[in-house]
C-alpha cells in the first residue's frame, strides 16, 4: 500500500489559516489501512482543527467526507455537489488523491494534510516498512524476493557493501541489511548461484528518471 503520516499540526494550521470553512476529505483505500487518512483520522483532525481554531478565537467550520478512492475521478466527482460551499478542500489522501481532486476542481485550493511516505507493507500492527520503489522493472525473482533498490540504503545491485554488520545496515542498527536478507533467502531457496552473477547496471528509464510515467491499456481506454 501507499503509506502516509499526518503533517505536523503547526503546518496544517498555517495552511488553513486564511479559511473559515473547509471540507476535510479522507480516502477509504491505503491511507485508511495505514491509519493516516481514513474516516477515523478525518474525524480526529476535524476535531483537532475545530478546537485549535476555537482556542485561537478564529472558529473554523470543518465538514467531513471520506471517498471510496480519492485517486479515481469517478469518486472525486462525488464532491461536485457540495464543494462550492467551501473555501478550500483539505485532503487526507496520498499525493495521488490530492492531485486527482485538484485536477477536477481547478478553481478551488486543495491542500495536503498528510505527507505521502512510501510503498510498503505492514510488519505488524502499527508498523509499516518500505518494500517497493516502483522502479518499473522488477528483479525480485533474482534477489530472493527482497528488493535491493527499496531496501538497501545505497540501492546496490551487487551487494552487500562493506558496511553490513551482523545483519544490519551501516546507517542504523534498526535497519536490516537487504543483502544479508537476500543471501539468507537465496540459501534457503538453494539459489546461491544467482549471487555469483553480476547484475547489470539498471536502465533507470523504467523508473522516474525516464520522466513521468503512464500506463495505457488500449483495450480499456476506449
Amino acid at each position: 500500500m501507499i503509506t502516509a503520516e499526518r503533517k505536523p499540526m503547526e503546518e496544517i494550521f498555517h495552511s488553513v489559516e486564511p479559511y473559515g470553512k473547509i471540507l476535510l476529505v479522507g480516502c477509504n483505500e491505503c491511507v485508511t489501512v495505514c491509519h493516516a487518512g481514513g474516516r477515523k483520522e478525518v474525524a480526529m483532525l476535524a476535531s483537532a482543527l475545530r478546537m485549535g481554531r476555537l482556542k485561537q478565537g478564529a472558529p473554523l467550520t470543518v465538514d467531513e467526507m471520506t471517498l471510496e478512492r480519492q485517486c479515481d475521478p469517478e469518486y472525486a466527482e462525488e464532491l461536485a455537489l457540495v464543494v462550492d460551499q467551501y473555501d478550500a478542500v483539505c485532503s487526507m489522501a496520498c499525493g495521488c488523491g490530492v492531485q486527482t481532486v485538484a485536477e477536477r476542481y481547478q478553481g478551488l485550493p486543495v491542500l495536503p494534510m498528510v505527507n505521502t511516505e512510501f510503498m510498503g507493507s505492514s510488519e505488524k500492527n502499527g508498523v509499516w516498512a518500505e518494500r517497493c520503489a516502483g522502479c518499473g522493472n522488477c528483479v525480485l525473482g533474482l534477489t530472493g524476493g527482497i528488493c535491493p533498490i527499496a531496501r538497501c540504503s545505497k540501492r546496490i545491485f551487487n551487494g552487500p557493501c562493506g558496511g553490513s554488520s551482523k545483519g544490519k545496515c551501516e546507517i542504523s542498527p534498526d535497519v536490516d541489511c537487504a543483502w544479508q536478507l537476500i543471501w539468507d533467502r537465496l540459501k534457503q531457496l538453494g539459489q546461491t548461484e544467482l549471487y555469483s552473477q553480476i547484475m547489470a547496471p539498471k536502465d533507470w528509464r523504467s523508473a522516474r528518471d525516464g520522466g513521468p510515467r503512464r500506463i495505457v491499456r488500449e483495450d480499456m481506454a476506449i
Binding site: M9, E10, M44, L49, M51, G52, K55
Partner: peptide, 8 residues
C-alpha cells in the same frame, strides 16, 4: 501530544 500541538 495532539492536544499539546493544538494549544490545549
Amino acid at each position: 501530544t495532539l492536544l499539546d500541538d493544538i494549544g490545549i
